[in-house]
Amino acid sequence: MKLESRNEAETKEIGRRVGRQLKPGDVVCLYGELGSGKTTMVKGIASAFGIDERDITSASFTIIAEYKGATPFYHIDLYRVETERAGELGLDEYLGKGVSVVEWAERAGEEIPEGSIKVRINYAGENARDIIIEGLRLNEID
């Protein structure tokens, strides 16, 4: 399904709706260029798990950020990872355990389990974005 976001707040809200549909074990792969709003989307998804959006910041530095909770939440950011090296990260230790959201998922190569949810964020203007979701159907009213 394709959704349109006019700004950061709407991207966050779509994220929250995605988050509400997720169950333990789910892996969400995020695709989009630098600055498209992937971390903003993660803030929205995380808010559905009771995580304060202020606590979600870029995970590029640490690559894997772990949030304890009823459902463990893993924010993974592969921005700096070379695909051929992704196997050395030990992603299998995380993926499928709680809920994982993976930025720059294309760099994970074969580490991403089959049946993962895919969210693609495309530029549609300076602030507007097209958001394409595969593998998950959002409720109309949520």
Binding site: T62, R80, G90
Partner: peptide
């Protein structure tokens, strides 16, 4: 350096 950033496991 070759990863362009820190790899936690390494």
């Amino acid at each position: 350096k070759k990863y362009g950033g820190i790899v936690p496991e390494l």
